[in-house]
Design a protein around this nucleic acid. Structure first.
Lengths: 153, 153
DNA sequence: GATGAAAAATCCGCATA
DNA sequence: TATGCGGATTTTTCATC
């Protein structure tokens, strides 16, 4: 992966806030021509620096009212077992984010669902019926203070 | 906020994966004309259903290698104290996500930084020098299994 | 909600440093 | 290798039905 220069970083900073900013406007902001901006964006997309271009949707608007953090502890931590858990979490549409972490727990999972009833059903399917889950702790979000993938740099 | 219909939801589902999909292609996919698609998108943006349009950047590419979960417990939970903590977290560029949660802890915070040294500096500034933080627990991500704001609906 | 024309943005070749 | 310019193509936008 090529090293990013200051132009690239300046472009990314704009795109992370609004990727519908025109190349012309970006060019003005960073002192580059529009085609140059577009070539850089294209290159960063090809290299995976820009992973995706997405609309951020208000979860409440689509009926998903609850954001829930779950700490997962496994019984067995062999690579195969870990992979199996990863895979099941990856495939669950309720799972919005999932990280394998160091420390007292094994996974941190962010689940977004319509209601507690749906969450309870989710835990039953994913955790209680999975012999490899030692325990899990649930933290329900009451207030979203900040929710971004905007990286401050 | 107006209720969303099936067309709106179908459009959102596409936009959450790739908001550069042309209105024409979206129209084909959902059986609507391009201008219709565009009016719906415009309306949902105005209503806040679509919160933003952003590029998702690979943190590693911009030198941010570490994703860290932090559980925060406060000493005092008066509304003023909670607000003060919220505000300081909101303004910290290292904080990518932050939720006020129920349960044994008060806040779940997702921090993204270059290195452990930077994180330690962050904890000193934000937690140790803040008299209202009773304790915090750190979970460092070793592997990002899933990282999306793509809501499965 | 659909159609079609105008406006705007993106994309591409070419010349250049 | 990367930039800027100009024009072709595509996409968005807007008026009308």
């Amino acid at each position: 992966m090529t090293q990013l220069d200051d132009f690239d970083r300046a472009i990314l900073r704009i795109l992370q806030q609004d990727n519908r900013t025109t190349q012309h406007k970006i060019g003005e902001a960073v002192n580059l021509s529009a085609p140059s901006v577009q070539r850089r964006i294209r290159r960063m997309e090809a290299e995976g620096v820009i992973r995706a271009n997405v609309a951020v949707v208000d979860p409440a608007a689509v009926g998903l009212q609850l954001t829930i953090f779950v700490e997962l502890e496994l019984v067995s931590e062999t690579p195969d077992e870990i992979d199996a858990v990863k895979k099941s979490l990856l495939n669950a549409p309720e799972v919005q984010q999932c990280f394998y972490v160091t420390g007292e727990v094994d996974f941190m999972v962010v689940v977004v669902v319509e209601s507690m009833a749906v969450y309870e059903d989710f835990t039953r399917r994913m955790f209680f019926e999975n012999g490899n889950i030692r325990k899990f702790r649930t933290f329900v979000s009451m207030d979203t203070i900040k929710s971004g993938s905007a990286l401050g740099f």
